[in-house]
Nucleic acid binder design. Structure first.
Length: 301
DNA sequence: AAACCAATCAACCGCATGAAA
DNA sequence: ATTTCATGCGGTTGATTGGTT
């Protein structure tokens, strides 16, 4: 079977979306919900490919998209998560309610990448004699043309190798946890003790080992694999200020809602603070994770 | 005012993945 | 076990915007 021809070959619309297209897509999804992207354009009456519709919805039209610039807290979170996970934009975005992977990726490539690469090299803040402007990153590499891909190598040299830890991403398509995942000793939260079959997710929900999670891009970091490493709560990073709650989760009162917003920290801390890992102290950046193995959606190689 | 350049970000592309057949 | 289908992800592109000369 060959690849299905892309939208340009099917004579479909490409490029910027019009207001009308946005309205049609939004209205259709409001009635029929997300999914079946392949058939959606036909059913909704859009002359677009499904992929394009999905992207438009996910990155722009979704009602829970947070507008406005990235806050300092969010930026810190992105930096820490990137250090931890590398270019796992969807997972990073999963920690930032209302932000999309595309947005995070763009923010990294345009703002943070530059910031981080300049930070240790303040002496390199030279001025381009022609433009009288501060040199951008690509200009630091005179042999390279200015484009995103050429900045890759530059950034590489400034970026710490991503910390490898055991983490799993949960998407709506994930049905079962990898067999090798073993939950640490039973831990508790505000609501009592979790069974050993449950895994703590953020947003205050739990997940049965055998059930599907609707949490997209959710992440569990398994402290079992942080053998003897000292980890403090900074590793688990501050929860973003707003949190969308899983519709399937029990409703929460005001107090519990607050608890829920911080559940990611609490739940993670409960893991980290269990009997195996009571040593608290180091900052994230000082941790030696080199001995850890990468289990990000992968089994051992 | 025009030209140039850098920055930004929406959108596209190809590939990987997993479910279903 | 293999193939097909549908979706998601990350890298890249290109249009637009804004600042400078």
């Amino acid at each position: 079977m060959g690849r299905r021809p892309c939208c340009s070959k099917l004579g479909l619309n490409r490029g910027a979306w019009t207001n009308l297209e946005d309205k049609i897509l939004t209205a259709y999804i409001k009635v029929h919900g997300e999914g079946d992207w392949y058939n959606l354009p036909k059913l909704a009456g859009l002359n677009r490919c499904g992929k394009s519709c999905r992207l438009r919805w996910v990155n722009y039209l979704r009602p829970d998209i947070k507008r406005g610039s990235i806050s300092q807290d969010e930026e810190d979170l992105i930096i820490k998560m990137h250090k931890l996970l590398g270019n796992r934009w969807s997972i990073i975005a999963g920690r930032l309610p209302g932000r999309t992977d595309n947005e995070i990726k763009n923010y990294w490539n345009t703002t943070l990448r530059k910031k981080l690469s300049e930070a240790p090299n303040r002496n390199n803040d030279s001025i381009n004699p022609k433009t009288k402007r501060k040199r951008s990153i690509p200009a630091l590499e005179p042999n390279n043309k200015v484009n995103n891909s050429n900045t890759k190598n530059i950034v590489k040299s400034h970026t710490v190798e991503p910390i490898k830890t055991k983490a799993f991403r949960f998407t709506s398509r994930v049905q079962k946890l990898p067999a090798l995942f073993q939950f640490p000793t039973p831990c508790t939260d505000k609501w009592g003790q979790f069974s050993e079959k449950e895994f703590i997710l953020n947003h205050g929900s739990t997940m049965d080992k055998d059930q599907t999670s609707q949490e997209s891009g959710d992440l569990i970091i398994d402290s079992c694999y942080c053998k003897g490493q000292q980890i403090n709560e900074d590793l688990m990073i501050k929860a973003p200020s707003t949190t969308t709650h899983d519709a399937n989760s029990p409703s929460l009162d005001d107090h519990d809602q607050h608890v829920s917003e911080n559940n990611w920290i609490m739940a993670s801390s409960n893991i980290i603070n269990n009997d195996h890992f009571s040593n608290i102290g180091d900052e994230l950046g000082e941790l030696d994770f080199k001995s850890l193995e990468c289990f990000l959606d992968l089994d051992k190689e």
